[in-house]
Computed example of a mutant assay.
Amino acid sequence: MKSLKKQRRIQVIVMAAVALVLATGLIGYAMRDGINFFRAPSQVIAEPPSETEVFRLGGLVEAGSLVRGQGESVRFSVTDGGESVPVVFTGVLPDLFGENQGMIGTGRYVNGVFEASEILAKHDETYMPKEVMDALKEQGVYKAPES
Rank of each mutant, 00 (worst) to 15 (best):
residue 114 F to G: 02
residue 10 I to A: 12
residue 2 K to L: 11
residue 43 Q to T: 06
residue 146 E to V: 00
residue 111 N to H: 01
residue 113 V to A: 12
residue 138 E to R: 12
residue 104 I to Q: 01
residue 42 S to W: 04
residue 43 Q to K: 10
residue 73 S to Y: 06
residue 45 I to M: 11
residue 51 E to A: 04
residue 6 K to G: 10
residue 144 A to H: 15
residue 21 V to K: 09
residue 18 V to T: 07
residue 58 G to W: 06
residue 33 D to N: 14
residue 65 S to H: 01
residue 47 E to D: 06
residue 31 M to R: 14
residue 28 G to T: 06
residue 51 E to F: 03
residue 79 T to M: 05
residue 65 S to D: 09
residue 106 T to R: 13
residue 23 A to E: 01
residue 32 R to Y: 05
residue 7 Q to C: 04
residue 68 R to S: 02
residue 54 V to N: 04
residue 6 K to F: 08
residue 111 N to G: 03
residue 125 E to Q: 04
residue 128 M to K: 08
residue 47 E to V: 02
residue 103 M to Q: 00
residue 141 V to E: 03
residue 92 V to Q: 15
residue 59 G to A: 04
residue 86 P to E: 08
residue 121 A to M: 07
residue 55 F to W: 01
residue 124 D to V: 13
residue 81 G to H: 12
residue 104 I to T: 12
residue 27 I to T: 13
residue 88 V to H: 01
residue 43 Q to I: 03
residue 47 E to P: 06
residue 28 G to D: 04
residue 34 G to N: 14
residue 19 A to R: 05
residue 67 V to F: 06
residue 15 M to T: 12
residue 30 A to G: 09
residue 53 E to T: 08
residue 46 A to L: 10
residue 33 D to Y: 12
residue 23 A to H: 09
residue 134 D to E: 15
residue 4 L to F: 09
residue 119 I to H: 13
